[in-house]
Write a protein that binds this DNA or RNA. Sequence first.
DNA 1: ATCCCGGCTGAGCCCGATCTGAACACCGCG
DNA 2: CGCGGTGTTCAGATCGGGCTCAGCCGGGAT
Lengths: 226, 226
Amino acid sequence: MRVLLVEDDADLSRQLKQALGDAGYAVDHAPDGEEAHFLGDTEPYDVVVLDLGLPKIDGVSVLERWRRDGKTTPVLILTARGAWSDKVSGFDAGADDYLTKPFHTEELLARLRALLRRSAGIASATLSCGGLRLDPKAARATVNGEPLRLTSLEYRLLHYMMMHQGRVISRTELVEHLYDQDFDRDSNTIEVFIGRLRKKVGSERIETVRGLGYRLTPLAGETEAA
Amino acid sequence: MRVLLVEDDADLSRQLKQALGDAGYAVDHAPDGEEAHFLGDTEPYDVVVLDLGLPKIDGVSVLERWRRDGKTTPVLILTARGAWSDKVSGFDAGADDYLTKPFHTEELLARLRALLRRSAGIASATLSCGGLRLDPKAARATVNGEPLRLTSLEYRLLHYMMMHQGRVISRTELVEHLYDQDFDRDSNTIEVFIGRLRKKVGSERIETVRGLGYRLTPLAGETEAA
DNA sequence: ATCCCGGCTGAGCCCGATCTGAACACCGCG
DNA sequence: CGCGGTGTTCAGATCGGGCTCAGCCGGGAT
């Protein structure tokens, strides 16, 4: 999952970037509204954390522009304590959730998980695909109850695929959502990781669709229990 | 589906051509307005991606000429960031959608899908013909709920036929929409693929109209559920 | 009844897409 | 500085699918 963090305070930015990274997100940071608008326009984020008090262009305007342009990416806004009106205008502009500063990092992470879940149209907190389970909160995955030992990238790959199971996902799309901005395009890393993941979750669960990408599906005999 | 990509920047062209190809389109590329106008006039594209900043003849003029000549092919224009006026004149000239550079490939693909869907006058995201279903987003087709295992060309063929079901489609038309410019005309590939497709979806669904082409129809007993 | 022509089909070639094992580069750590 | 664990690169092996070919079939015209 890839997140855009829009925050001008350097300390807080550093801290959040660290926390989000630890939580397994690929993070891009924009220190002002201009940069934020540009990045949001350019890169395919899964979710945005947007501070409303920003230099150059303020947060609400950025959000309004994105929505006017038809972007539906879920956005969580950060407001100062007591800045009630900010919160309202933020929602009017199309925010999906908010958090007032100061807040606990944990809470931010929890809300982000909820947003991602909602945006993927998934109800329950843990993702499942046949005998495969993934709990974003604990960053833990199991096959038929057996815990899986996944590396960070393997986990992120699986997470993304589970959020988009049933549909073909191109290598390009994977690269764009697993890594932040600068990444060498023509590399076969994704293929290698798909291979490694297959060894761990069972090859049959990840189907390759020649010329298009990969698709995660429950095994033939498995019933899909939501 | 066949798309004309009009873009002068060599790097971007290569990248987009790749991405569009990956997404299953047959792509022709025109590096300048003259070539664009010629190709658009000559070949039957399903959709056009048109950069407005072009050498020789500029994009807006090309678009204007096409529209004046009565072409209704959906056109998506690419504009430079902040080139507000370009976007406006593009719309005035008859563009169906726009995207400002730089943009994300996925978004381009999504918009193209939307355009194609709109242009075929089909509301739902999935095409259906009796017990046959095709979901372009997931790149997946089913017969009576059973998923079909289709190769890339089989899928494209079926996709095109479903978008024009009920009508006779000539081999020539198929060739023109499934392949890019240079394709050996007197080849029986289409027949071969029609054959393969019949084996997978049921021969009766694809009727041969001798001397004219093929027609995709629901089976006799099937009611067409939209 | 035969012939002709368009259409159908099975087999097989060939190339590029994909996979895979192993080596290499990094990094944090003791 | 050596080590374990990760991510990335590389090169060769493998595999699948698009295309061609040659021969068969069936309908309509003569």
